[in-house]
C-alpha cells in the first residue's frame, strides 16, 4: 500500500515562486502578435483578410487591431508581407478597461493608475466562483490548472468557492450564449457586494470566436459590469494569475492603448 503523504513530501516543492521571482512556466508560449502599422503598404489587406475573428480591420496605413478579439492564432504574422505583425510571447493582456485592448496609434504615456477594485481585505483573501457561459473547455482546463501544484493559487490567498454567495469574483468564460444568460445573471445577482467580474478569455471579452449566429454570443458586455478584461484563447494560467492580481492591485497592467509594456 503506497504511502502517498510520504511520496508527496519526498517529491519536494513543485510550486513556482513566480510572480515573486523565477520562471512563470510559459516558456515558448506564443501570445498576441506585436503590431506596428508604420511599415504598412497602402491598400494592403493581407492580415485583415486572413484574421479568423476580425480582430484586424481597415486597410493599408489605417489597419487597426482589437486585442479583445485576438485568439493568437498567428495567421496574420504569417500573412504580413512587411513585418507589421510580429510573433511575440506577450500573453499578460489583462486590462481594467476594454478600450485599452484597442490599438490607439503610437504609444502614449499611460494615464495615472486608478485604485484597484479589490483592495483592503480582498487583497489578502479573495474567493472565486467560475461560470462557464459556453466555452470550448480550453479556459476551464487552464483555470483548473491554477490549483495544480505548479501554480498553487492558494499561496496567493486566492481560493475557489462552490457558491456565488461566498464569492468575491466571478470568473466568466465563453461568449455567453443565450441558454446561459439567465443562469449567469442569477449567479451574479447571488453574489454579495462588492463583487468583481473578470471576463476570462477572448470569448468572454468579445465573443469573437463564437460571435453571432443562432448559438453565439458577444461576450459579457453589456450583460454584467466587468472589472478586468483578459483576452487569450485560452489565457494561460500565469495570465489568469496576472488578471487576478491586477484586480487586487498587486501587479501592474502591461497593456495600454494596445501597446505591451514591461
Amino acid at each position: 500500500m503506497p504511502l502517498w503523504t510520504w511520496t508527496g513530501l519526498k517529491a519536494g516543492t513543485a510550486t513556482a515562486p513566480w510572480p515573486g521571482r523565477g520562471p512563470d512556466g510559459q516558456a515558448g508560449v506564443y501570445g498576441m502578435p506585436r503590431f506596428d502599422p508604420s511599415h504598412c503598404r497602402p491598400d494592403c489587406q493581407s492580415c485583415v483578410a486572413c484574421c479568423p475573428t476580425a480582430a484586424l480591420s481597415g486597410k493599408g496605413l489605417d489597419v487597426t487591431l482589437d486585442y479583445g478579439r485576438c485568439i493568437a492564432c498567428q495567421a496574420c504574422v504569417e500573412a504580413c508581407p512587411e513585418g507589421t505583425l510580429e510573433a511575440s510571447f506577450d500573453w499578460a493582456f489583462a486590462v481594467r478597461d476594454r478600450d485599452e485592448l484597442l490599438w490607439h496609434g503610437p504609444a502614449r504615456p499611460p494615464a495615472a493608475p486608478r485604485p484597484a477594485p479589490a483592495t483592503g481585505a480582498f487583497a489578502k483573501s479573495l474567493h472565486i466562483r467560475h461560470v462557464d457561459a459556453g466555452s470550448c473547455n480550453g479556459c476551464e482546463s487552464e483555470i483548473a490548472a491554477l490549483n495544480n501544484p505548479f501554480y498553487n493559487l492558494h499561496r496567493l490567498g486566492i481560493f475557489f468557492t462552490p457558491s456565488p454567495r461566498f464569492a468575491d469574483v466571478l470568473l466568466v468564460t465563453g461568449p455567453v450564449i443565450e441558454a446561459m444568460r439567465a443562469p449567469l445573471q442569477a449567479a451574479y445577482e447571488a453574489m454579495p457586494e462588492p463583487r468583481f467580474v473578470i471576463a476570462t478569455g477572448t470569448c468572454a471579452v468579445s465573443g469573437a470566436p463564437f460571435e453571432g449566429g443562432y448559438g453565439g454570443g458577444h461576450g459579457l458586455s453589456p450583460l454584467i459590469p466587468v472589472d478586468v478584461w483578459l483576452p487569450g484563447c485560452p489565457p494561460n494560467p500565469a495570465a489568469l494569475i496576472h488578471a487576478l492580481l491586477i484586480l487586487q492591485g498587486r501587479m501592474p497592467m502591461r497593456v495600454h492603448g494596445g501597446h505591451y509594456g514591461p
Partner: peptide, 24 residues
C-alpha cells in the same frame, strides 16, 4: 501528482509548438 504530470505535458507542448493546447 496527476495534475502536475498534466501541467508538465502542457508546458512541454508550449515549448514545442507555442501553444499549451498544441493549437495553431
Amino acid at each position: 501528482e496527476g495534475e502536475l504530470l498534466e501541467e508538465r505535458v502542457k508546458q512541454l507542448a508550449g515549448r514545442l509548438t507555442g501553444s499549451r493546447f498544441l493549437r495553431h
